[in-house]
Amino acid sequence: MVTRALPTERPLEESTAKRIPRRAALRFLMGTIAGSVASLLYPILRYLVPPPESSLNANEALAGTVNELKPNSGKTFRFGNRPALLVRLTNGEYRSLSGVCTHLGCTVQYRPESTQIWCACHNGCYDVNGRNVSGPPPRALDNYEVQVRGQEIYVSRKRVA
């Protein structure tokens, strides 16, 4: 198209007749653009609303409350996508270790009678520090850090650089 000044005089009916479909096309275009903007705005607006779940990361988990465990008892809780153990020793101290047996991956449990951690699958035994003391487990259990904040007990992975 060559740019030239449009002529000032032209038959009126002609120009109006040509303009109508153009105006309709423009209206249609505006409509669809509005529609597309709306369909993109909707997810954005939904996105802005924070989700209900608290975003505790996989490095830390809430293991329990202060009065939940009696001395010489333990409980299993979820840490990330694996089970973990929270043990309260006879002297009141807390220990937390991985709950996955190093033999074949069964979930271990704390046994108050022997004050040891035991695996029901093949009778593996660990001491409260996680060291494998008898049975098939070839390695010790990983230890976690325990932090008591107020009434809540938080467990986190051992800090590395």
């Binding site: 954005i44 924070p50 990361n57």
Partner: peptide, 21 residues
């Protein structure tokens, strides 16, 4: 370093349309 991965995981899994963004 301790929260970056988890925050992206949060965006992808929990935030509405986070996966899309």
């Amino acid at each position: 370093a301790s929260e970056a991965y988890e925050s992206v995981q949060n965006i992808t899994n929990h935030v509405q349309f986070g996966w899309l963004v």
